Structures are given as C-alpha cells and as structure tokens.
Amino acid sequence: MGVVRDVWLVTNELLETVTAPWSPEEREERLKAVEELLRRREKLLGALRPPYSEEERALGRDIVAWNRDIAERLKAVQDEIRRDLRMAGAKRRANARYVHPYEQPLSLDGMFYDKRR
C-alpha cells in the first residue's frame, strides 16, 4: 500500500494548497508549490501497479474525488489570472491614451465624405 498511500498524501497536500485562499501577492509562490506537488504526484502515479487491496481502492476513490475539486479550483485560479491580465492591459492602454492623447489614430466620427464629383 506504500505507493497508493504516498499518492493519497501528496493529493491531500495538493488539495489543501489549492483550497486555501490565495492573495494576489502570494499567487506566484502558491503556483510554484502546486507545480512541485503535481510533479511529485505524477512520478508516484507512474509507479502504481495493480492489483489493489480494498483499502487501496478506498484511497483511490478519495483521490478521484479530490482531483475534481483540485481541477475546479485550478480552473478558478486560471480565470482570475486571465481577468487580471485583461485588467492590466486595459489599464496600460488607458494610461497610454492619457499620457499621449494626440498619438492615437484620428477618429473618423463626424467627418464628412462628399460622394459627388
């Protein structure tokens, strides 16, 4: 039961890491910790070999259930990062327009175009 138990422990640690609240300041460190836990778990998953005892199957059911929660939380973090990147881009463009108001292309609103020759 050693490898299954190790996978269960690493998955539990991963679940605790992703479910704890993340502040934007500590996001970088948390993502590094998540990546390291995923690497460790991937190595352990490669070492799994059947047959499994009933206790190992119960641990496996826990792991599968936790994987869904982990995936949902990581998807939420990904959405937060995308939103932050969009906001940063919008702020950068707004700042550029404010600092250099006459460098933007001219607006065609209000221009008169005479079709007659």
Rank of each mutant, 00 (worst) to 15 (best):
W22P: 02
W22S: 04
S23C: 13
S23P: 02
S23Y: 10
P24V: 03
P24H: 10
E25Y: 09
E25P: 01
E25R: 15
E26D: 12
E26G: 13
R27F: 00
R27K: 11
R27L: 09
R27C: 08
E28W: 02
E28H: 11
E29K: 07
E29R: 11
E29S: 11
R30A: 08
R30E: 05
R30H: 15
R30D: 05
R30L: 05
L31I: 12
L31H: 05
A33M: 07
A33S: 09
V34M: 10
V34Y: 04
E35C: 01
E36C: 02
E36P: 00
E36T: 06
L37A: 02
L38T: 00
R39P: 01
R39T: 13
R39H: 15
R40Y: 01
R40K: 11
R40C: 08
R41K: 13
E42Y: 13
E42W: 07
E42Q: 15
K43L: 12
K43H: 13
K43P: 00
L44Q: 08
L44N: 13
L45W: 05
G46R: 06
A47Y: 03
A47S: 14
A47V: 04
L48W: 00
L48D: 03
L48F: 07
L48T: 04
R49W: 07
R49S: 14
R49C: 12
P50Q: 02
P51R: 06
Y52N: 04
Y52G: 01
S53G: 14
S53I: 05
E54Q: 14
E55T: 03
E56P: 07
E56V: 06
R57P: 03
R57F: 09
G60T: 00
G60F: 02
G60H: 05
R61T: 07
R61M: 02
R61A: 13
D62Q: 09
D62F: 01
D62W: 05
